[in-house]
Amino acid sequence: MSIGHVSPIRTYILIWAALMLGTIITVAASMVDFPGPLNAVVALAIATVKATLVVLFFMHVKYISYKVNIIVIVSAVFWLFLLLGMVSIDYVGRAFS
């Protein structure tokens, strides 16, 4: 049986270091007053970068052998936003009525 892609240890250490850096930046950013919603945007953007690194390298999606799984993963994200977005329609609408 094929053992799949074996990443060098160096890659894992690098990703781990990037995740640590992201954690430090996100904590530091929370101490700064950004205008308007930017604090939330920055925090969620950093979280998304971290999440992407975990998915691509720790979860090996970058080297995934069965490409259909990528559709599976994308549809999970899509449906999550569908849930958040469609429910929000009601609450945004209520703010206007």
Partner: peptide, 20 residues
């Protein structure tokens, strides 16, 4: 997956959502 709130038309959801 995009139609569920038609169960809630008279429950107090916003009119805009009801239209959608």
């Amino acid at each position: 997956f995009l139609v569920w709130a038609h169960h809630m038309f008279v429950a107090g959801i916003s009119l805009y959502a009801a239209l959608v």
